[in-house]
Design a protein around this nucleic acid. Structure first.
Lengths: 186, 186
DNA sequence: CGCGTAATTGAAAAGTATCAACACTGGTGG
DNA sequence: CCACCAGTGTTGATACTTTTCAATTACGCG
């Protein structure tokens, strides 16, 4: 539910002596469709990676927590960003310029391998998540994410959760109140 | 719809002198939940990467075409396979042992970068696909994948297409016949 | 021909979206 | 201090979409 990457965070803390920067909730790190020239690694807080479609509806790809990396895909593939990324809670992030990122990727074998692992983990996670989302009903999906991150409803706005599950806010609320009546939640 | 990676295929053809191996439709390359010790790169044909859930329903993650790589994620992250991979059409694939793959990844900068790009492309694609799947209705999704791969209905079984879209065969058929009546398809 | 796999269709049940109204909260300014 | 506002959350009624289940047809192949 909230992705983390402690191994990468530790490495970045030790080997990149840059000061973290702070973002407030709702502030944008990366705009959808924009050219990306910075890699962000989250020191603390939660960000969301989301995609706004032509009708103005959002779809939340992932929630990023400690150690998660953003912007690396666009730089590696030289693409504009598919998703936007913005802060959900207050955020502290390390920034790495495109130039430095490419340099590390090329010269630092350990960093290179950490990125390979980070990318693989993202694919692994996305595969599981998409399969679960589409194979199970709303109730099961809710119980699953609640199990993965018990504090979810106190931390992340309902609309973001609905957009993460690919359902409407109404459906989320209905299912939540049913689960509450059956004492399966809260 | 059908993923390809010509750049990787060209590189593998030139630099890895191994003979391709053939698989018939329905044959399994990688079993779900199994340890993976070979990387496969598709020379020709189409494979599917799918996930069978506890109810016996399949969800198709991707269809792989020429140049697509399979098994690299499991080897990089030292995980068992989340998805199964099997041949949809007759398949010709290059195999690389885990040992060789790791060796190339470590010593061959061009190969390393091709894999970084391949992984990034997979994430990019998965992000778009999941968003489309959940944001649009069945009709739009069908028209979209038909546009991406016009020969789809003559090449890929209907049940696989339904499982790719995360819908039932019944829904697929209903939507198809509606589109046919409106002359938007076939 | 007979068999298994794949494809098609109808009818009822279940699930989800849409729309609209209303409640709660923490500011902000008169 | 209160009125107002924006953002967030809640709920009901109805329309619509998708699944489920079951029956039937089409096709390829030994």
């Amino acid at each position: 539910m909230i992705r983390t990457n402690q191994e990468l965070l530790d490495y970045v803390k030790k080997n990149l002596n840059s000061d973290p920067q702070t973002y407030l909730p709702h502030q944008t790190l990366i705009g959808q469709g924009k050219r990306v020239n910075t890699v962000y690694i989250i020191k603390s807080g939660i960000a969301k990676c989301f995609l706004t479609n032509e009708n103005g509806n959002d779809f939340v790809e992932e929630f990023f927590g400690e150690g998660e990396i953003v912007g690396e895909i666009e730089i590696i593939n030289n693409h504009v960003s598919v998703c936007g990324v913005s802060a959900v809670t207050e955020l502290s992030v390390y920034k790495i310029s495109e130039e430095n990122f490419k340099h590390f990727l090329d010269k630092d074998k350990i960093f290179n391998h950490l990125i390979l692992k980070a990318l693989s983990a993202k694919i692994h996670y996305k595969a599981l998540r998409h399969a679960h989302n589409q194979s199970n009903d709303v109730e099961m999906n809710l119980l699953r994410i609640q199990k993965e991150f018990p504090g979810i409803f106190e931390t992340i706005p309902k609309l973001d959760i609905a957009n993460y599950l690919g359902i409407t806010l109404r459906s989320l609320n209905r299912t939540l109140s049913e689960l509450r009546m059956r004492n399966l939640i809260r």
